[in-house]
Design a protein around this nucleic acid. Structure first.
Length: 873
RNA sequence: GGGAUGUUAGCUCAGCUGGUUCAGAGCACCUGCCUUACAAGCAGGGGGUCACUGGUUCGAACCCAGUACGUCCCACCA
């Protein structure tokens, strides 16, 4: 049956993925005779759907893991998902709402039942999608950050850190997400520059007929003002010292205080102090012993301190109060103003600084080794520019707010006593024991567990250890074998969220790094450079792309232009290029597959040289490939193979050895070509797993276990540099002949003759068969004197003539040669100038001087050849 | 405000210790080809004052200083 002219990926992909699964090629168990190679997946959110970022990220991981597997390492890629407390809880709340259920009406237990139900139904879709991409993860090891044993690890770690004195509880000003209804860590707040307004508001001075004007971006909080502050040295406001100001609309008296914190230049130099709603005001409040009036509810609406605005949302109030102030005559003016506003990374709500009781982890005390081991490159970041960022974060690391006012997550193992004290323990029974030290009469009924859960990242920071059950069973075979893992592939956005914290946890709990290398990918953007997002609708559906271009096409497309740390400007054209490459490979296979072998035939000279040459080329490329991989230059690695396949193998090698139409091929050339093909698809396999597996099995009869996924990576051999060097000249000649054909509009079908006049013609003789074949030359003369008026090609110092039957414009030939001659003379001049420079001769290294001398000799030789050719015209 | 980093062909990027890999690659573009694996292709070709200014050097895309523009991270004077 004829093989399809174009490669058709869809059924082939499903077939081989199932085959790999059936034969458990992804499965890994500790094997002391092999070197482990481990990657833990950055667990996508259970709520997640595959997007382009995942595609890039997981393709890279799969490339690394497949290569390691072929290199004979025990490759283990651990997949899993993250419970993502805020995101998932929001989804579940939304789902309940649709069913007419309000979270408020549910108990914690009821809610969690719904949440698990949701998770079982929708969670982990993303892992199935990754299979379409070809991800060779050990699915039997799939973990979930909230499965019982992982949660247990989280609780144990919490207790341990508490016992070590690193965790404390206290009232602090935290980042409050009114939409999520929870506190957030600093890392979960994204600051954006926004256009806002600066409102100038007049406060009456108590007992006087004068006014002071303050400037604020948040007029809705004026009822929570507890002071007005001016700079003590500000002459404009000295009359205010020790006076009172009256909050407009509320008519409440507040003191005027002075503090050098105030900048006289900004706004009016008068600040309204709102300790409950701004971190700086809060600090000022503490210093001046001001009362704190909190006028916001957790959901961002105003509470009873908002009086007439009670129950209204903070932003509605802002608009309304501005109107009311204007009517009351207290609004002086409004200015446009750019300010930076914090948004919740998860819910995109504007963050509210809010005073609340939270749990914190003291980071400074446990982060020492994590900083040190990245700075000294024990752990390497790719690209290394991220080291600086890492350092500055680590050096200024602040306490981590780890409590979240949510239900979906690990509940904090703290138990409150009736007296308000608390104990930290794994179970209520243990808690009771501890509590009894304070009051022996207590029972479990008297204890109340902390409602809050821990931050999601407080579980994912344990991931590289907990996926191998390293907490529950620290001496188990898996953790001992696989830890520390090798490479982590993730986005720079979560360098602090996750990577840094995993490193901290790694040293704290294993005394060792969690991974050796961190490859930080870029962000996938559209071709205009915009971040891909749902709201912009500029993100293609990866599964559709796979359908259109094939998984291999999409994988290579993604990798074509994504150096580590660089954003990827995604364009579907890249996938098309990937698909075209697949097709190219497919057709190369079709060609080879169609050959018939005649055992009686022996290899000709051209074939022998072709084999020698490609062997050298392959080994050179392999060396380059390894170098790229060692530096995590994945797209360069791909490009190396791409060019090797397309240019060197298809355009040169196959053309050199391909027999004439319906002619048989000799056995040796055939066998060697198959061997080359196998080596090529081996080094392609990590990038394009499916098509290479298909061709692997089509090239030869193989048993079902003999798969390329577990084939051995080609061995690096000595590169024959000499033949590569020689071939350059030959290729140059062939291109020049083809160019001459093009210029003179001579069809490639018309065979030409060649006369080569060279000092040393051995190279041309060696490649004679190849020249004839690739340039369609019927005969090459070496000794004949050149014919008059033949078009000449000058390569180095060699004159090559193409005698043509009907002569073509000798004037034109002359013109071209003169042009070339002039260029060479100019070039010679510059080289001679350099060589006659005394300082150059004395201070440049000998190698460079030698090089220049060689240049001069070559130029002279070439000039001579051109002149000789010119003389004939 | 602090820090990092970048600016090389129309686009995306390589270019390592300053010099024979020095101005490159892929894509795009132009010309000619349905040549017996492939038009998702073949052959050939044209594109760059290496952001700008100055300096160091025999020699600078590369080192130094400054300027302009961009990106990222951190901090947040209302």
């Amino acid at each position: 049956m004829a093989i399809a002219k174009t490669y058709n990926p869809s059924e082939i992909e499903d077939k081989w993925y199932q085959h790999w699964l059936d034969h458990k090629f992804f499965k890994s168990t500790p094997d002391p005779s092999k070197e482990p190679f481990t990657i833990v997946i950055p667990p996508p959110n259970v709520t997640g759907v595959l997007h382009m970022g995942h595609m890039l990220n997981n393709t890279i991981q799969d490339v690394l893991i497949r290569k390691a597997r072929m290199e004979g390492k025990e490759a283990c890629w651990v997949p899993g998902t993250d419970h993502a407390s805020i995101a998932t809880e929001a989804k579940v709340v939304a789902m309940l709402k649709e069913r007419g259920i309000d979270k408020k009406d549910l108990t914690r237990e009821e809610f969690l039942n719904y949440a698990w139900e949701w998770k079982d139904k929708y969670g982990g879709i993303i892992l199935d999608q990754l299979k379409k991409l070809g991800a060779s993860a050990d699915w039997d090891r799939t973990r979930f950050t909230m499965e019982p044993s992982m949660s247990e690890a989280v609780i144990d770690v919490f207790i341990d850190l508490y016992k070590k004195g690193h965790i404390y509880r206290g009232v602090r000003m935290v980042n409050w997400d009114p939409k999520g209804g929870t506190a957030l860590s600093d890392e979960e707040v994204i600051h954006k520059e926004v256009n806002s307004k600066l409102y100038y508001i007049e406060y009456k001075v108590g007992g006087e007929d004068s006014f002071i004007t303050i400037a604020t971006t948040r007029p809705e909080t004026i009822f929570a003002d507890t002071a007005i502050c001016v700079h003590p040295d500000d002459d404009r406001y000295k009359f205010l010292h020790n006076k009172k100001a009256i909050i407009p609309l509320l008519n409440k008296e507040i003191p005027v205080i002075t503090d050098k914190y105030i900048s006289m230049e900004f706004g009016t130099g008068c600040l309204k102090v709102t300790p409950a709603h701004d971190i700086n005001d809060y600090n000022l409040g503490i210093k001046h012993n001001l009362p704190v009036v909190d006028l916001l509810n957790p959901d961002g609406t105003l509470n009873e301190h908002g009086h007439q605005y009670k129950g209204m949302d903070r932003f509605t109030v802002r608009k309304q109060i501005v109107k009311d102030l204007q009517e009351a005559g207290n609004l002086v003016k409004v200015e446009d103003y750019k300010s930076s506003v914090g948004y919740s990374e998860r819910t995109d709500a504007v963050i509210e600084p809010r005073l609340s009781m939270q749990w914190f982890l003291k980071m400074k005390e446990i982060s020492g080794p994590a900083l040190e081991n990245v700075m000294n490159d024990n752990i390497q970041l790719y690209p290394s520019k991220f080291k600086n960022m890492y350092r500055s974060w680590m050096e200024n690391v602040h306490d981590w707010c780890i409590s979240r006012q949510l239900w979906w997550g690990q509940q904090i193992p703290a138990y409150y006593l009736p007296n308000g004290q608390f104990v930290v323990a794994k179970t209520i029974e243990e808690a009771l024991n501890l509590a009894k030290a304070q009051d022996p009469s207590l029972t479990t009924q008297d204890l109340r567990q902390e409602e809050d859960v821990v931050d999601t990242w407080f579980s994912s920071w344990l991931w590289p250890i907990s996926v191998f059950d390293g907490f529950k069973n620290p001496d188990n075979a898996d953790i001992k074998y696989y830890y520390p893992t090798n490479d982590l592939v993730t986005a720079p956005e979560i360098l602090f969220f996750w990577v840094a914290r995993m490193i901290i946890a790694g040293y704290e709990y294993k005394g060792e790094m969690p991974f050796k290398n961190v490859y930080l990918t870029g962000i996938v953007r559209d071709k205009q450079g915009r971040k891909m997002s749902k709201s912009l609708g500029n993100s293609p559906d990866p599964l559709n792309l796979i359908k259109t271009y094939g998984a291999d096409g999409v994988r290579t497309g993604m990798l074509f232009s994504s150096p580590a740390g660089n954003d990827l400007l995604f364009d579907e054209k890249l996938c098309e290029q990937g698909r075209n490459f697949n097709n190219k490979l497919w057709n190369a296979f079709r060609l080879v597959d169609g050959w018939t072998v005649n055992p009686a035939l022996s290899s000709g000279n051209a074939e022998k040289i072709a084999i020698e040459w490609f062997e050298a080329k392959f080994n050179a490329a392999l060396t380059e490939l390894e170098d790229h991989f060692s530096k995590f230059r994945i797209s360069d690695a791909l490009m190396t193979v791409y060019k090797l396949v397309w240019d060197d193998f298809c355009s040169w090698y196959l053309e050199m050895v391909k027999p004439g139409f319906e002619q048989p091929i000799d056995s040796n050339t055939y066998q060697t070509t198959i061997k080359f093909f196998e080596d090529l698809i081996k080094i392609l396999h990590p990038f394009m797993p499916f098509i290479t597996e298909e061709i692997w099995h089509e090239l030869k009869e193989r048993n079902e276990k003999d798969c390329i996924i577990v084939a051995s990576w080609p061995e690096k051999k000595e590169v024959d540099q000499a033949i590569l060097k020689e071939s350059e000249l030959i290729f140059e000649l062939i291109a020049a002949i083809r160019n001459t054909r093009n210029n003179k509009q001579i069809s490639p079908k018309v065979a030409l003759e060649l006369n080569i006049v060279a000092k040393d013609a051995s190279g041309y003789k060696k490649f004679e068969g190849i020249i004839k074949k690739l340039a369609n030359i019927s005969q090459i003369g070496f000794d004949k004197s050149p014919q008059d008026e033949a078009p000449a090609i000058i390569i180095k110092g060699d004159e090559i003539y193409i005698p043509l039957k009907e002569q073509l414009n000798p004037e034109k030939e002359k013109e071209n040669l003169v042009k070339e001659l002039e260029y060479m003379k100019g070039f010679l001049l510059s080289v001679e100038k350099k060589l006659s420079n005394e300082k150059f001769i004395t201070s440049a290294p000998e190698k460079v001087v030698e090089g220049e001398k060689q240049k001069k000799a070559d130029a002279l030789e070439k000039i001579r050849a051109i002149e000789s050719a010119l003389a004939l015209l």
